[in-house]
Amino acid sequence: MKALAARRHHRFAPVVLMLLALLATGALYAVMTPTTATADTSASAEDIEAGKQLFQANCATCHGVGAGGADEVPSLIGVGAASVNFQVSTGRMPMQASGPQAPVKPAQFTDKQVDQLAAYVASLGAGPSVPTAEMVDPALGSPSNGAALFRTNCAMCHNAVGAGGALSEGKWAPALWDTTPTNLYQAMLTGPQSMPVFNDANLTPEEKRDVISYLVEQREPSVGGLSLGSLGPVSEGLWVFVIGMGILIGFAVWIGAKSS
């Protein structure tokens, strides 16, 4: 123990620790998500090589040549293909400027390039892989169970129907209207940016699909008429003044005015 204590201040200690932590995380993921983590093996060596080229050209500036990250930049070793696919296909990565919030932008890479990048990062360390079409098919999920799960786990940030909401210090939880089922699944699985991770022990793959099913259901038009942004009582209060009082004061002026 003494020897260990002495070496704690060795300058390579953080690196060793990190490697150990990564190994542990990777191992944990391997145990936790056996079905998804092994799916990566399908990636070909050419894809990985192409992905590496893309990574060096577009990502290495921040994430480091070995994808090991830096002070404020997370390491990508062990994040898995799902995380890369989510971040890059939604245009969040590459970021324009470093910060806690990665806004959605038009994607900078083609689907094939995204797959290549994902294959390369996945090759660096085992992590969650991209879900299959069946795993995210909203038709197979239960919207009512998804609604219950969404209320408890997601609505506090993303609003009751996924219209988005504010976080602290200028960050925000995005609206989920346009997010693809695959991206929804990946976000739950990998916990991008401020969002916590919902691993398969927390929300099982079936439960994740239920959540997706609920969110897709919310994209149907509101039964009561225009949804007014689904922002709740504040927007309703605004509209009662703008539309209700607006029209009625207009009528009142007409009633009070002399006829020509």
């Binding site: 995380t25 944990l28 936790m32 219950a148 799960l149 408890t152 786990n153 916990g191 916590p196 991770v197 919902f198 691993n199 022990a201 927390n202 439960e207």
Partner: peptide, 20 residues
């Protein structure tokens, strides 16, 4: 776990995740 009622193992709780 709320609302499903599944008991939680310590090993289920990975870094960065949140359980209700």
């Amino acid at each position: 776990i709320d609302p499903s009622g599944r008991p939680i193992k310590a090993s289920d709780v990975t870094v960065g995740s949140v359980f209700h």
